[in-house]
Design a binder for these strands. Structure first.
Length: 819
DNA sequence: GAAGTGGATATACC
DNA sequence: ACTGGTATATCCACTTC
């Protein structure tokens, strides 16, 4: 017997004598690596039809108990059946808990249960690991005091411990959660460099490895005069792969971390290893990485958690980021104030001695950046994992719909709720065909420059609507009941029960937790509290989208549509109250309202806010976003009506908030963006257009005199699909084609860069003037004046009756005909 | 072949 | 396919005369 602390990190399972066993790799408090083997009862649920007689249930129960199956060479049987009172989608039901030998057989057993007494079969599609975590409450990345029998080269479980590179293998007897939270995992970051970006398409020139006090670049590209202490030379590419495996095994990290490594580094290493018949035995059981095809690849290593940091950052942080791409370079700049080493990658055949040295440094630094980013995001990764209660391998890759669903699945037991099944492929197809429902309300602003503006917004708007009106799949009523919530969705009446459903209840907890942690964070900030607060915020925000998401177990279009409808009512109602109070609403989008304070004072306005709040139903709450000195709204390019989702505000702290304008759009050239930004700032600070106009005239002059750097004229557009799938051949498609011709790697998801050149001849289309940044040509003066600068600033000056078009044309040296 | 319009596409807001 | 709908803007593709 052995007792120790234990933190579960990586989850796997295996079958032994027909039963499932969880195989969980983790550490103890002394840093020893431990594998625990454990089993749990395996079962699913059968929901019985209403009003079945006790005797009939008994007969059915006995009948089911006798079921035996021999499938796929595996003998399995129903081991026990129990009758329970459960909840299922808002209904109290009688349900049979059907225990079986093997989790993988649950589906087949369920298929045998087509009896007329049975209404539904549920809970066989969670996956064994999820089922195990729910059953045994052995949550990922939480500390436990465990005890069990040490397996030492034991024949038990077919000698599973013999080939496992761990300090102890324990057959678990008991596990109790303990208070300890701190965990500093051993991490190893890696990055490869190749000549060809196609997976396995070229040689791996080098691989860098970075851990605590460990920095290494392994290469087989000899460069005898370069003496860098971290560079290790090996004979050839095959030996590089072997050495890589040796280092990973020697360092034996908890996490092997890369950046875009699911889609590049790991599959590349595997492909090259296959080519040379080198075993990439990275797993603690000596297994090779396994890849799963999804929308993108994922690479799994047994016992060591492979993390692709890019994926985690995408779900947990991209919505707050300033970076225009999620490239390692930009993300490092934003979060680490560091960047990739400056090195223009060339084909290895064209590298000289100095280049190689820089290449090694570059390669090493990529792993250093990944290492530092991991440290930065570790609090978020651990909090996400603890909250969703799924293995960190999955949580670090999941999108927010998955996170919402994981949270729900792992909290159902508190509501005595039987899990809903995952929609079938057909069902998903049907859901996707249903047309959109009406969403948020957006107020059409009257263009102008306004002074003294107040902004109110609803806290967790959609979340608080869902909770307040109890909107979910399980609370949706088939027909009107007295004392229910009612709303119209495209002329159809929909009703929701007032008896709290588990989904709104869970969401209520999420919103409350978010509030608590936000407060705690404010009192005494630290990374863990920030991460926790953020995780609950994201969960709350994604819950609305989840109910409208076609892939959701708890999909409910009516609930999603009702959420938007109730929110529309709430905001419109508030707007009219604001206007009735002699304020003047100038803008509103979804959950926020901007209005003029007029002759009222701030304290009066805050009192008014309190009054509004007193009247709001349920947990709905309006809060002050801020007081603003000035605000700018412009017209749309076509017509004279005010543009929605486009405005700029000057705060009392002199901070400027710009939304929707070209300034914040990455598909406009830098020149247009900076010029517009400067114009907006000048106008907001001064309250008039004078200085901005002088500045613009200067810029126009500079453009005409060709004084603008080409770098400021580059337009960047993302290639959102494979090049061959484009129906409309727009400028960025032409640019991408040009890149392909020049064998510059370009693929879906990449940003394409180009500029518009003069180009001789009568060509009319913009795409005919596209040039790549390194193609020498004169920039097209007319294009940049009329298609970049003019659209960016025209509407702003229009507010002051200044016609920029005339200013551009008035001093123009070329005529319209030339364009 | 010019003018007008709708569709395709990218990106932002909340 | 991997949370939802609302909105702006550009440029191409196509129709029409």
């Amino acid at each position: 017997m052995m007792e120790t602390d234990f933190i579960p990190i990586d989850y796997d399972y295996f079958d032994f004598q027909g039963r499932n066993y969880a195989k969980i790799i983790g550490r103890n408090n002394k840093g020893k690596r431990i594998c625990i083997i454990d089993s749990c009862p395996v079962y699913f649920w059968v929901i019985l039809k209403d009003n079945l007689k006790q005797k009939k249930i008994k007969t059915l129960l006995e009948k089911i108990k006798k079921i035996k199956l021999d499938i796929k060479g595996r003998q399995t049987k129903v081991e026990n059946v129990e009758l329970h009172d459960k909840n299922y989608l808002g209904k109290k039901v009688k349900a049979l808990k059907i225990f079986a030998t093997n989790y993988k057989d649950l589906h087949d057993i369920a298929d045998k249960l087509g009896m007329p007494e049975i209404e539904k079969r549920r809970g066989y599609d969670l996956g064994f690991i999820t089922h195990y975590i729910i059953e045994k409450k052995l949550n990922p990345l939480s500390w436990y005091k465990i005890s069990g029998e040490v397996l030492n080269n034991s024949e038990e479980f077919g000698g599973i411990d013999m080939n496992l590179d761990v300090d102890f293998c324990i057959k678990l007897e008991s596990a109790t959660k303990i208070l300890k939270t701190e965990f500093n995992p051993k991490i190893l970051c890696y990055d490869i460099e190749t000549d060809d970006l196609k997976i396995g398409g070229g040689e791996i020139l080098m691989v860098s490895l970075v851990s605590d006090d460990f920095k290494k670049v392994i290469t087989w590209k000899k460069s005898p005069h370069t003496k860098l202490n971290y560079v290790e030379y090996v004979k050839d590419e095959a030996e590089l792969l072997e050495r890589f495996v040796e280092y990973v095994r020697a360092i034996s990290p908890d996490f092997l971390v890369g950046y875009f490594s699911d889609g590049f580094d790991l599959p590349y290493l595997k492909a090259r290893a296959d080519k040379y018949h080198v075993k990439l035995s990275l797993g603690l059981d000596n297994s090779q990485p396994k890849f799963r095809r999804g929308r993108v690849l994922t690479g799994k290593i047994n016992g060591i958690v492979h993390i692709d940091l890019l994926k985690f950052i995408q779900t947990a942080y991209s919505q707050y980021m300033q970076s225009e791409t999620l490239s390692l370079n930009e993300v490092s700049k934003e979060f680490l104030n560091d960047n990739k080493k400056d090195f223009a990658i060339k084909h290895s055949s064209k590298l000289d001695e100095k280049d190689w040295k820089e290449y090694f440094e570059y390669n090493l630094h990529d792993s250093v950046l990944t290492y530092n980013l991991f440290q930065k995001f570790w609090p978020d990764i651990i909090e996400f994992t603890r909250i969703m209660q799924e293995p960190v391998f999955d949580v670090s890759r999941n999108g927010m719909s998955n996170n919402v669903e994981d949270y729900i699945i792992h909290n159902l037991n508190r509501f005595n709720e039987i899990p809903e099944k995952h929609p079938t492929h057909d069902e998903i197809g049907k859901r996707r065909q249903i047309k959109k429902y009406e969403g948020a309300f957006v107020f059409e602003p009257i263009p102008g420059l306004y002074e003294d503006i107040v902004v109110f917004d609803f806290t967790s708007s959609y979340g608080s609507v869902i909770v307040t009106y109890n909107l979910s799949k399980s609370t949706l009523l088939q027909k009107q009941e007295k004392n229910s919530h009612h709303i119209k969705i495209s002329e159809k009446d929909v009703y929701f029960s007032k008896i709290p459903g588990f989904f709104p209840e869970m969401l209520k907890e999420i919103i409350e937790k978010r509030k608590t942690y936000k407060k705690e964070l404010k009192n005494k900030p630290d990374a863990i509290k920030r991460a926790r607060s953020n995780a609950f915020k994201l969960l709350a925000n994604a819950s609305y989208g989840y109910q409208g998401f076609f892939g959701a177990r708890y999909y409910c279009r009516e609930a999603a549509a009702a959420t938007a409808a109730f929110a529309r009512d709430a905001i419109k109602n508030t707007i009219s109250k604001i206007n009735k109070e002699k304020y003047e609403t100038i803008y509103s989008d979804t959950d926020s309202i901007a209005f003029l304070i007029k002759n009222k004072s701030k304290s009066e306005t805050l009192k008014f806010l309190k009054k509004l709040n007193d009247k709001l139903p349920g947990i709905m709450e309006l809060e002050l976003e801020g007081f603003f000195k000035r605000g700018l709204w412009v017209t749309k390019r076509t017509g004279s009506v005010g543009a929605k989702k486009k405005y700029a505000l000057l705060g009392e702290d002199k901070r400027i908030k710009i939304r929707g304008f070209e300034t914040v759009r990455r598909d406009w050239c830098k020149l247009a963006r900076t010029v517009q930004n400067k114009v907006i700032r000048e106008v907001l600070f001064s309250g008039n257009e004078g200085a901005a106009l002088e500045y613009v005239k200067e810029v126009i002059k500079n453009i005409k005199q060709r004084k603008i750097n080409k770098g400021d004229l580059i337009i960047k557009t993302q290639l959102k699909k494979p090049l061959s799938e484009y129906k409309a051949i727009s400028p960025h498609v032409i640019a991408a084609r040009k890149m392909q011709e020049k064998e510059i790697p370009i693929s879906q998801g990449n940003l394409v860069e180009y500029y518009i050149a003069e180009t001789e001849g009568k060509k009319k289309l913009v795409r005919d003037k596209v040039k790549l940044p390194n193609e020498k040509d004169k920039y097209n003066i007319q294009y940049y004046l009329e298609r970049q600068i003019l659209p960016a600033i025209e509407n702003i000056f229009q507010i002051f009756d200044v016609n920029i078009k005339e200013i551009i044309e008035g001093k123009k040296q070329t005529t319209l005909k030339d364009f």
